[in-house]
Design a protein around this nucleic acid. Structure first.
Lengths: 252, 252
DNA sequence: CGTAGAGTTGAAACCCATCAACCCACGTGG
DNA sequence: CCACGTGGGTTGATGGGTTTCAACTCTACG
């Protein structure tokens, strides 16, 4: 809990620089007045708190959501209370693109820590994309990017062992934080070990063991949710270290 | 090889019913003249043969591709000749959506058997989507659908054991063939065991063992690439059989 | 008929999940 | 103020599902 205050201090600073949506995720190729129009349809909500829902699986799809500060997890709940974590979303990232097809949400989204979220009514966004070709193109790119990201995850889950998965996860966090102007080497995890394991297809115990192993190997220092990366190229070499032909387990 | 002839007979019959693109993947909400315009930008190429490339990783992105008959695999080649199979694409399915973001292909696509493929120049498609709001909406849905599909795969690779993965794979093929008017119970695999294993994150040997086990259990009959599903609900119960809370390995 | 590649089958090793116990931080209430 | 309970996190031992290695069969093809 105390950690959340720390990450909030960080993120609030950044929030000032990211006041409008365009800056967050649809930045390129728009003239100022189009940015204005885009900004005009964005709803800003009061801050949400840990555990609050953006939407629940099965609900009618109305809006996309953009994280301004804080973090959000998406997951698909299965009967019996079990759940599959689908992603963690940091500032500047968009949520809800998977709901467009069926016009209803197929996953749930909950806030992991106190967060500021923008809401973009999709119907109004579509009106704009019709008029603004460059905005339409950005939307296509955005959707395409999501597909590319899922592809990466697919590769991670299909071909990488536990060590590689956690290293890739940490590097992904690090890079995404850096992109938002936060420290890529020193950050707090807003999700539990259980959620990390669930996301990476690993048991909690495996995640825990790997954190301690990484620390023992001097790759990082970890204290509960506080992570400090000491040897980022070491982590990168774990991920880059591609087995030649073999499949899942380490083959060289 | 003899099998390929058989699947060709089947697919050629269907080809006649799927002459234009709109029927294949952008069917809804278009008036006849818009369908006409859409159809106007589609290039039809001569049949491609096993091993032919639709595009290679790294190439400039120009067009989307739609499978009319036959099948295509997409994969991301890694150095050293290893590859990760990303998907198998059957008639009516679209390829290349992941390339929009970076404006260059991040995976390669090769034809698995003699196939007919439509090419849709993306720049021209975007001109149309600007003018035709319902077409734009269909494009958004199409991209969103791809994300949803990737999500399913993510769940498969992250939480399912080998048995569940192969069962899900076979059911997916079965349903997609049925959607195109082909038999959901009797079909030929156009991909090798190696490619199936690669796709599902399993070793070839595991795939082979599972095929024989499924056959022993009366779920299906398999002779090389020829698959006959005997107990589809049996396969469904393997997939539906969700572990309550546990992660990867079978937990009940 | 001989080679090559795909597919199958068996035995052994191994990564990781599972089970269990324990530690620690935190909040509650006596 | 401290005992207590709870939930998250860690650590150890064990077992199991899959990979890996290896040998073999079968088909295709020259």
């Amino acid at each position: 809990m105390t950690q959340h205050k720390v990450i909030s201090f960080e993120t609030i600073r950044v929030a000032c620089r990211n006041c409008n949506l365009a800056t967050l995720c649809l930045p390129m190729g728009l003239c100022p007045e189009d940015v204005e129009r885009l900004d005009g349809i964005v709803k800003r909500s009061r801050p949400l708190h840990r555990g609050d829902y953006l939407f629940r699986s099965g609900e009618r799809f109305r809006s996309l959501y953009v994280v301004k500060t804080g973090s959000v997890k998406t997951y698909s709940p299965s009967e019996e209370g079990g759940e599959q974590v689908l992603g963690f979303h940091l500032p500047g990232e968009i949520i809800g693109l998977d709901a467009i097809e069926k016009d209803c949400h197929i996953c749930s989204a909950r806030v992991l820590e106190t967060s500021a979220i923008c809401e973009i009514p999709f119907a109004r966004l579509e009106e704009l994309t019709c008029c603004i070709p460059s905005l339409q193109h950005q939307m296509f790119r955005l959707l395409s990017k999501e597909i590319g990201h899922d592809t990466d995850m697919l590769l991670l889950l299909g071909k990488r062992n536990a060590e590689e998965r956690l290293a890739a996860f940490l590097l992904s966090l690090s890079r995404r934080l850096q992109k938002r102007g936060l420290s890529p080497y020193d950050f707090y995890l807003s999700m539990s070990r259980h959620e990390i394991g669930n996301y990476l297809g690993l048991a909690v115990e495996t995640v825990s063991r790997l954190f301690t192993r990484f620390q023992d190997e001097g790759l990082l220092h970890v204290d509960r949710k506080h992570v400090m990366i000491r040897d980022i190229s070491g982590l990168e070499s774990i991920v880059g270290h591609q087995p030649l032909e073999g499949n899942q387990q380490r083959s060289s």
